[in-house]
């Protein structure tokens, strides 16, 4: 197989992000970061394909410089190379310029058979980037994939549909997004991690390297804007604890359920 490119995003842990009610903005500064969970599934899927059919797994990410340490985790899992698209002008991108920037880099990498994304990112959680990369590269796509087979230049995947699944086949190159939890991502190899931290140099490309212009990327290249943030206030619940022995708890619970059902 030729290159397998995996799009990887680094996201703050959902539980660590807080809302400032005064400025009405999100505070991500104290949040711990991690590779987007579904993207770990994407990396695992790529490595499994490489082990079977050969080729090189290349990680591709657009984001600030600190993403580097996370891409090295992917290298330690078994990816061959990593490219970080980093430029001040890329900041504030919605999905359109994100996909455009990634697609431009994919063309520059060249010689690819497959582009694998996660189904969605856990922060904004839009799941649009894979579809848009496919459009910018004029490639066929299958999203929400949970299994992959490759033969003779064709890729056959199982994709989710409402209430079931489809098996579809496409010629490569193609774009897929994999479902969160579709496989068990392996742990980074300890020796490889040490090597990645000390010796591995990832490529860093900026706007000029990609021949892109200001107006096309980042905030300026975006179409959607956040008018305001609203913190959702979860409904106030009673939080009444039901105590007693198991039998007593069960009996009390029974009464409560019956009361609600008949109300």
């Amino acid at each position: 197989m030729r290159n397998i490119i995996v799009c990887v995003k680094v996201v703050p842990k959902t539980e660590d992000v807080t809302f400032d009610p005064v400025t009405k903005t999100l505070d991500r500064s104290k949040a711990e970061n991690q590779i987007n969970e579904a993207d770990k599934n994407a990396i695992e899927a790529a490595i499994v394909l490489k082990e079977k059919y050969g080729g090189k797994v290349i990680l591709l990410s657009m984001g600030p410089m600190f993403f580097e340490q996370f891409l090295k985790i992917g290298i330690a899992m078994g990816a061959d190379d990593a490219i970080l698209l980093s430029d001040r002008a890329f900041a504030g991108a919605d999905s359109y310029p994100t996909a455009l920037t990634l697609a431009t880099a994919i063309k520059k990498i060249g010689d690819y058979d497959l582009i694998i994304c996660g189904e969605e990112s856990s922060d904004a959680g839009l799941g649009q980037v894979p579809s848009q990369i496919a459009e910018f590269l004029d490639l066929p796509q299958a999203l929400f994939v949970s299994s992959i087979e490759v033969s003779d230049g064709l890729i056959k995947v199982k994709r989710s549909i409402r209430g079931g699944h489809e098996i579809v086949e496409m010629p490569m190159p193609a774009v897929i997004s994999v479902e969160l939890g579709m496989n068990q991502p392996r742990f980074p190899d300890f020796k490889r991690k040490r090597w990645a931290d000390k010796e591995f140099k990832l490529k860093i490309w900026n706007m000029k390297d990609l021949n892109l212009e200001e107006g096309m990327v980042g905030l300026k290249g975006s179409y959607t804007f956040v008018n305001r943030f609203i913190e959702t206030i979860p409904p106030q619940r009673k939080r009444e604890f039901i105590e007693g022995s198991l039998e007593e708890q069960a009996n009390k619970l029974y009464e409560i359920i019956m009361k609600i059902l008949s109300s």
Binding site: T14, V17, F19, L26, S122, D123, A124, G125, L126, Y223, T224, F225, V226, N227, R228, F229, I230, E231, T232
Partner: peptide
Amino acid sequence: GVPGYGGRFIAEIVN
């Protein structure tokens, strides 16, 4: 209204 971070925040989006 687009939920983010698992639904804890809603971003009101315009184009």
